[in-house]
C-alpha cells in the first residue's frame, strides 16, 4: 500500500492540474462569449450575401458560365479539401472530428478516381494531414483564435486562383459549425463551383417566405447587369463563406475547450476524493499498527 506521503503528493499534483483546467475553462468561457457575438453579427451578413448571389445567378442564367470563376468544369478530377481546425488542442474531439471527416472524404474521392488537394487552417489540421504523408497545397496557421477577414481573403484567393487555373475542379470546406457550447456540428459545404455552392445551401427563413409567396414575381432592376454583379459577388461570397467557417470554428473551439476542461476539472475532483479516501485508510492503518505495537509492548512487560 502507498504511504501517506506518496498519496499526499499525488493529491497535491492533481489539485495543481485541477487549478490549471479550471483556469482554462474560465478563459475559454470568456473568449467564447466574444466569439459568439462575432458569429451572431456575421450570420445575417453572410445569409444576405448568399441570397443576393442566388438572385444574381438566376438572373444571369447561362451567361454566368462565360466567366472562368463561375463556370462549372466538364470533368471533376482534382477536388480541393479545405479543413478548418484549431491551432491548439485540449478541446476534446474538436480537431480530430474534422480531420477524420476530411480523411474519409479523401478516401471516397480516391475510390471514385478523383484526387484530393489538401488545404488546412490551424496547426492541428496542418500537422495531422502532413503526418499522414499528404502534401498540403495551402497551410494557414496562427489565427484560429481570432480570425480576421484578411485571413479569409488570403485563403479565398488561393482556392479561386486554383479553380480558375484549372488545378481544382471543385472545392469543399469542412469545419465545425457552432451550435452551442456543448455541440459543434461537422459541416461540409461546396465552395466552388458557385452554382453548386449557392444551390446546395439551405434556404433561410426569408427565402422560404419568398418561395411560398403566390404573387407574380416583380420585375427587378439590375445595376449594372446580373453578370457584372455576379462577377463581383462571387469572390466576396467565397471570402465571406470562408470567414464564416473560421469564425464558427473559433466559437466552436472555445465551446469544446470549455466543455473538455470542465469535464477534466470534474474528473480531477473525483480523483482527489479517491486519493483522500486512500490517504485516510493509510493513516488509519498506520495508527492501528502503532496501537497494536503499543499493546503488544505493554503485554510483554506485564
Amino acid at each position: 500500500m502507498a504511504s501517506q506521503r506518496d498519496v499526499r503528493n499525488k493529491i497535491a499534483s492533481v489539485k495543481n492540474i485541477q487549478k490549471i483546467t479550471r483556469a482554462m475553462e474560465m478563459v475559454a468561457a470568456a473568449r467564447l462569449r466574444r466569439a459568439e457575438q462575432r458569429i451572431e453579427a456575421l450570420r445575417p451578413y453572410a445569409d444576405g450575401m448568399r441570397r443576393m448571389a442566388r438572385q444574381a445567378a438566376i438572373a444571369a442564367g447561362s451567361q454566368a458560365e462565360r466567366q472562368p470563376l463561375l463556370a462549372e468544369h466538364d470533368t471533376v478530377s482534382n477536388v480541393g479539401l479545405l479543413l478548418v481546425t484549431g491551432d491548439r488542442g485540449l478541446a476534446g474531439g474538436f480537431n480530430s472530428q474534422i480531420i477524420r471527416a476530411g480523411v474519409r472524404l479523401a478516401a471516397e474521392l480516391g475510390e471514385g478516381g478523383k484526387t484530393p488537394v489538401w488545404f488546412a487552417t490551424g496547426r492541428r489540421g496542418v500537422s495531422s494531414i502532413s503526418f499522414r504523408g499528404n502534401e498540403l497545397t495551402g497551410a494557414y496557421t496562427g489565427f484560429s483564435d481570432r480570425p480576421g477577414y484578411a485571413d479569409a481573403r488570403t485563403i479565398a484567393d488561393d482556392v479561386m486562383t486554383g479553380y480558375v487555373d484549372g488545378k481544382l475542379d471543385r472545392v469543399e470546406l469542412i469545419y465545425n459549425s457552432y451550435i452551442s457550447p456543448l455541440t459543434q456540428r461537422v459541416t461540409r459545404e461546396v465552395l466552388l463551383p458557385i452554382s453548386q455552392a449557392i444551390g446546395d445551401a439551405e434556404p433561410d427563413e426569408q427565402e422560404r417566405d419568398d418561395a411560398t409567396d403566390e404573387r407574380p414575381p416583380q420585375p427587378v432592376e439590375y445595376e449594372p447587369d446580373p453578370q457584372t454583379i455576379l462577377q463581383r459577388l462571387v469572390p466576396d461570397y467565397i471570402e465571406v463563406s470562408i470567414y464564416r467557417a473560421l469564425v464558427e470554428s473559433a466559437a466552436g473551439f472555445y465551446g469544446a475547450q470549455m466543455t473538455a476542461m470542465r469535464s477534466a476539472s470534474d474528473n480531477a475532483g473525483e480523483i482527489i476524493t479517491d486519493y483522500t479516501l486512500q490517504m485516510n485508510r493509510a493513516r488509519q492503518a498506520e495508527i492501528t499498527q502503532e496501537i497494536m505495537e503499543v499493546v503488544a509492548g505493554a503485554e510483554g512487560l506485564s
Binding site: M52, Q55, A56, A59, Q218, P219, V220, E221, Y222, E223, P224, P226, T228, I229, R232, L233
Partner: peptide
C-alpha cells in the same frame, strides 16, 4: 452610389439589386 451612379430610394421603389 451604385456602380452606375447616384441613387436615392423611396418607399415603393421597384425591385433592385446593385453593386
Amino acid at each position: 452610389f451604385t456602380g452606375v451612379g447616384s441613387i436615392s430610394l423611396l418607399a415603393g421603389h421597384e425591385a433592385l439589386l446593385a453593386t
